[in-house]
């Protein structure tokens, strides 16, 4: 193609317009991508997550965000367990038999309501259902007034 004055100005105009609107789209994309402060909201910034013991009464469970992941913390008697709350089958959130919740077929284990997968509360091992892998477990330390998840 022969470069004429007309086509040169055509390219310059087109290039400027593409640069202008491309930059505009880029800035809108920057606005739309969630900032790290918002992603990390709800804890999980540090290595350890501290939950006041009053927030988790005995025989109850709680799903928290720790290290960017959802973790289910279960207080059974005097023992506290922390496991990944994301079912390894298709990513639903597992639950535990909280007080007053009937219909758990397999005792005190973790259950995924989506496709009936069961996990061992202590080890995260698969006890039944379609889940291909066990749930990840996290170390827990219990002090008289705090539950600490993770190691320092």
């Amino acid at each position: 193609m022969k470069l004429t004055r007309r086509s040169l100005f055509g390219w310059l105009l087109g290039g400027s317009l593409i640069a202008f609107f491309g930059n505009l789209l880029w800035e809108v994309g920057k606005y739309l991508s969630p900032p790290p402060e918002l992603i990390a909201r709800g804890g999980g910034g540090g290595k350890q997550l501290v939950i006041p013991i009053a927030d988790l009464p005995p025989e109850r469970s709680k799903v928290v965000r720790y290290g960017g992941k959802l973790v289910i913390v279960v207080r059974k008697g005097n023992q506290v367990y922390a496991l990944s709350a994301v079912c390894t089958h298709l990513g639903c959130i597992v639950h535990w038999k909280d007080k007053g919740e009937p219909g758990m077929k397999m005792g005190d284990n973790l259950h995924c309501a989506c496709h009936d997968a069961f996990f061992d509360l202590k080890t995260g091992k698969v006890l039944g259902g379609p889940a291909p892998q066990p749930l990840q477990t996290f170390p827990v330390k219990v002090t008289p007034d705090q539950i600490v998840i993770g190691e320092a």
Partner: peptide, 13 residues
């Protein structure tokens, strides 16, 4: 407050 202080260019929008 988040839009104004945290989100990129949120103050402008």
């Amino acid at each position: 407050v988040e839009i104004s202080n945290v989100v990129t260019l949120g103050w402008l929008v």
